[in-house]
Nucleic acid binder design. Sequence first.
RNA 1: GCCUUGGUGGUGGAAUUGGUAGACACGCAGGACUUAAAAUCCUGUGGUCAGAAAUGGCCGUGCGGGUUCAAGUCCCGCCCGAGGUACCA
Length: 993
Amino acid sequence: MAEYTKDEIKNIEKKWQDEWERSQLYHVEIDPTKPKYYVLDMFPYPSGAGLHVGHPLGYIASDIVARYKRLKGFNVLHPMGFDSFGLPAEQYAIQTGQHPAVTTAKNIETYKRQLRQIGFSFDWAREVQTSDPDFYKWTQWIFMQLFNAWYNKDIGEGGAAESIDTLIQMFEQNGNQKVNAVCDEDAISFTATEWKACDEKGKENILQKYRIAYLSETMVNWCAALGTVLSNDEVKDGVSERGGHPVERLKMWQWSMRISAYAERLLKGLNTIDWPEPVKEMQRNWIGKSVGCELDFKVADFDETIKVFTTRIDTIYGVTFMVLAPEHELVNKITTEAQREEVEKYIDVAKNRSERERMSEVKRVSGIFTGAYVINPFNNERVPIWIADYVLAGYGTGAVMAVPSSDTRDYAFAKHFSLSIIDVLEGSNSDITKDNFDPKSGTMINSGSLNGMLWSDAIEKALDKVEELGIGKRKINYRIRDAIFGRQRYWGEPFPVYYKDGLPHLVDEDDLPITLPEIDEYKPTESGEPPLARAKGWSYNHKGAAHPFELTTMPGWAGSSWYWFRYMDPKNEDAFCSKEAESYWQDVDLYIGGSEHATGHLLYSRFWCKALKDLGFVKEEEPFKKMINQGHIQGVSAFAYGFGVGVKVENPEAITQAIKSGAKLLKKHIIPKQSFDRAVKGEYDSLVKKIIDARLADLGAYGLQVSLNKELTTFLPFNIDVDFVNPTTNELDISEFEKSHRYFGLGIDEIVLDENNKYICGREVEKMSKSKYNIVNPDDIVSNYGADTLRMYEMFLGPLELSKPWNTNGIDGVYKFLRKFWNLFHDSTGTFIVSDAEATKEELKALHKTIRKVEDDISKFSFNTSVSEFMICVNELMALKCNKQSILEPLVVVLSPYAPHITEELWEKLGHSNSVHFATFPKFEEKYLIESSFEYPISINGKVRAKMNFALDMPNDDIEKLVVASEIVQKWSEGKEPKKVIVVPGRIVNVVL
RNA sequence: GCCUUGGUGGUGGAAUUGGUAGACACGCAGGACUUAAAAUCCUGUGGUCAGAAAUGGCCGUGCGGGUUCAAGUCCCGCCCGAGGUACCA
């Protein structure tokens, strides 16, 4: 038996997976004689649901590239690991008491088993797990380096991080007068003498304002339901990304990372890397650079100035009012007595509006006049000062010069409070009586010395004037905030930090790793302290005294911000990565993963990489040279439609008795979709009416006087496990469903069938997720069709970057292809046969066409088209009945990145003693593709009129072709001389008569 | 609103970047093999009009214009979907 049947596939795939593991085939070591290639997948979080068909999509693509590059002679680093710290394991631990390490280890086992059976060429000897103390030892170590570093803007082009010792030295010599650092806004200036006069605590408080990893009292996103703070990218629309719990703003002492220091380098670096444009764009927006100026407006009748930030200084003659954030420090001082009461009332209301309310009421205009005025320094006009909550205290200076003629928010505000509007731009085909102006075009009017200038030139001119008047300077603002680095959780890296006299200190390097202590419960304590406070006797012994450890842990992104370096040298106990390994493997050549990490992981990783470079630990400025985002495979959810009849009981005193005798007040039904849809609109059809009547009659029988209560009547669609639903007819398998946990969990009492005695589910495309019960597990596909079919099918589905719903409609086509390919080598009895006859030109052509196309497609990551090309090739060879070794052998090699198991088996049958892994990718030869003659259409005035043959031996020269073409056309067009003959080499000829 | 992407048969999707649109696959229809079914193989398959047929004409890449001998591809103006983001001055 040697047919490519389902049983045989299992044997073949198992045989080769065992063999690869036995021989450690995909293990790599540094090899200076070969060029390196580093292909990396974003490592998964090992969730309890196991791998679903969406996961392997990117892994298959990267595996194809890895295998292809190996055949091309590269030394390929292709590792896999697990981002194993995370919230779900911790929440599971809180519920069940199971240690997160245990759940995590179990989940990793499942993931590895599933990954193994798809036949990836990962070097498992290099596996990393972020929750492994041998790994997080180095996460802690890197934290220590960042704690001991500050950002010196005077080094190199954009500044760089360096050791905190150099800063201390500078303080001792000159105080902070000459220090040009990125630091907290509230850092005050001091002299060397003042520095020396500080005690240890005073010095440390100053240093915290400079360290890259630092402790500060900041506004954080506090999520009470999760009992922890969240970073900005973990908050979506005012609720937590995981779980959707409300998030509030609180001031807390927190560890942060000074990523803002790297804003400019993070922005500039984007131009040097080959990433998808949307991701770059997201990072640019997140960094949010705006170039403009800061300038002072004098407050009339006060000895005060108000500093504003603007990017449109050219529109300064259009300023008709000024707006302060409610929290602005001068509000209290400048408010006139007449306005004071109202202003205070407004500020009070604004304070109590939560972040979420403010977001949902974006369009609401509110504000209050302070009674004070500022003087416009360009024309000395008096401009009223208002307060409004659309101005944010945290961005820029918390004050805005409002130009209603070129800013929509200012415009809405001016209209609402009937403030004046002065147009300063002309020719921008806009209309300031309406909200449709375009401030980025036109020339200046009503603008004194700026009149007649283009708006962009006017900016430069006005900037010069601001600096000349000494009222302000050019300034660049960034939106990016420092990243909060601490979490009030158990399942994360502990900080290598202890406290002595209330000051944070680093532990000795020799004492790393600081491992997670055992605790009896994983919840925060009753007093609201993080779970680590439960650890008994957990303290740091230093010079004979015990000191408390930091109780928060690092966030989920800590381990993933440097893990690609660890793969280079995963077992090293003396360094996170040896110099030798780092200088050989350098950076990631190809990174594949989802775009959802654009403003999280991908930004933090670039930040840490730059910091590590500044501190001299690595050489590369950017970690991921090229990236592609794989699209998500969406799940097709199945829905059933719940219906609960609400009743009004007229004699409540009878309820207790009724329940005792077995009445059930609430019953949950599942009803057909049509009835449900109508019922939601308030049209109860006969089926629904029947259920209602039956309910009322049923309860009536227990002595209750009941009537229908429409308000308590509920209609609710809910997800059904897709495994219980027929994929083509959408029919629910009721007997299977009734046995499931889901059925009992929902507490369904009755399933009402439709007129055909079936229950047909509704369908919707959604994200594939456990909570939507729409996960398709690759195990079933692998056991039905084999891993090679799964791999090729996932590639065949469409372009890698595209999101698409999972369906198995075309999977038979791919399976048939593999069988046909197999059958090329076998006769009808299943005997392996190849011929050693010489290949014909036609056969060589089929082969070389495929080689070229596949190479081309892999370099463009267009795997779907190369799968098509394989199918075409095999169809051609089948038609030619070609089973010649000289054709099939190279074809096996070309196919092997896509379908490694079947090709490995055939390779062995072809008589090779080693793996196809060691083969060389066949060289493409153009000579076989050149046709003996080409037929080109000739069009005359745009219409195809004739076909023309070009002979192969004709000189490849335009003029020659032109002569031939014009001769033919002349003959054809009844002697008319063509006006113009257009010849594109190797393409189309067109003639204008 | 803004930014980024897309829009091609019944379906997933091709189209060498301006050169015969619809490759390849699914589905569907017809045929062969079979007692029958499954499996397999062959043929057809964008729409429409003419023809008994081979075949030929016209229309067709979200909509409306434009550039060009030639537009799915380039330019201008709209419509719709997906993802991101939002009082960032």
